[in-house]
């Protein structure tokens, strides 16, 4: 309101300034008129020159006077537009016919709305950056080339930290033995042996689990040249099914900010397979369905279900 009022006070100065500008314009045009007309006919050449110079000087003086007057007035007027948060568009509030052209109120609403939008977008982008859905930096593809990519911190954990997390989990579950190896650089590979039931090969990227393969306890987990065989699947249908479910679990347990919790949750879930052949389905109460035992374990309750019995 104060802005509006001060603008109102200065209105007189505005009017004077405008008339001063008009005066200046007319005096300037008089100067050019005088130049255009040149020397008028007089009796003598000397008389002509004198009259012309006197006339030209008069005109220049009046221009000078008008200019000074305008400068004085412009100081009076001040700079009302810069005080207003909406700059020049704030002057719209001076429009007396509010009802016909409610431009100013509309403008204010739009301004508030866009302010809020910007604020919320900023918050959202911050949150989304934290909860990145991309598990692997490689997937960024083309866009990664254009902008300098911020490597997710969880992908650059020191191997020592990964070792610590894994050995802690190993100690947590006595019936589960975890053997960690790094055959290909820094990425760890785990060979998890669960009781005398199954063996799981877990391929890690830092603390992210990239791939799991479940095989039988009696099945071979090494290739002929003594490396962990991370590609071929189990010969038994039941373990192929469990492999599928384990992959589902990988996608289910996601918490990019706390990768160690993810690994621990996954291992806890995996541990429930110790009773793979002993637990009947919690829904139908039977052991077998289509020749398979209950291969599904609920993510929350860890109860056993047949693949088709879970809902």
């Amino acid at each position: 309101m104060a802005d509006v009022l001060s603008v109102g006070v200065n209105l007189e100065a505005f009017a004077q300034a405008i008339s001063a500008i008009q005066a200046l314009r007319s005096s300037v045009s008089r100067v050019f008129d005088c130049l255009k007309d040149g020397m008028r006919n007089k009796e003598t050449l000397e008389g002509r020159e004198k009259a012309f110079i006197a006339h030209f000087q008069d005109n220049l003086h009046s221009v000078n006077r008008d200019l000074n007057e305008l400068e004085r007035l412009s100081n009076l007027v001040g700079k009302p537009s810069e005080n207003h948060p909406l700059h020049n568009s704030g002057l719209l509030s001076l429009d007396p016919v509010q009802d016909k052209t409610p431009l100013y109120s509309q403008l204010l609403q739009a301004y508030k709305w866009s302010n809020k939008l910007q604020y919320h977008a900023g918050l959202a982008s911050g949150l989304l950056n934290q909860q990145s859905l991309k598990r692997s930096a490689n997937q960024m593809g083309v866009s990664a080339k254009r902008r300098p990519k911020a490597q997710p911190t969880t992908l650059v954990l020191p191997p020592q930290y990964v070792d610590d997390v894994i050995s802690r989990i190993d100690r947590m579950f006595p019936e589960m033995s975890i053997h960690l190896s790094r055959p290909n650089g820094t990425s760890a590979m785990l060979l998890v042996t669960l009781g005398k039931v199954l063996k799981v090969i877990v391929v890690m990227r830092s603390l992210f689990i990239d791939r799991t393969i479940v095989r039988g306890y009696s099945e071979n987990v090494y290739t002929e040249d003594g490396k962990l065989d991370i590609w071929s699947k189990s010969n038994y249908q039941v373990f192929q099914k469990v492999t599928d479910h384990a992959t589902t679990a990988l996608l289910h347990y996601q918490l990019p900010q706390m990768p160690d919790v993810v690994v621990r949750s996954f291992m806890t879930w995996l541990r429930s397979y110790i009773k793979l052949f002993q637990a009947p389905c919690q829904r139908c109460g039977k052991f077998l369905q289509d020749g398979l035992p209950p291969t599904w374990r609920d993510f929350r309750t860890l109860e056993a279900f047949h693949d088709t019995c879970r809902q």
Binding site: N235, F277, F287
Partner: peptide
């Protein structure tokens, strides 16, 4: 024979259900 399992006491109930079938 139930191939995936190696401990007899683990899968006897499961085997029994299959035998009954």
């Amino acid at each position: 024979e139930y191939g995936p399992c190696v401990v007899a006491s683990d899968c006897w109930s499961l085997l029994l259900e299959f035998l009954q079938s």
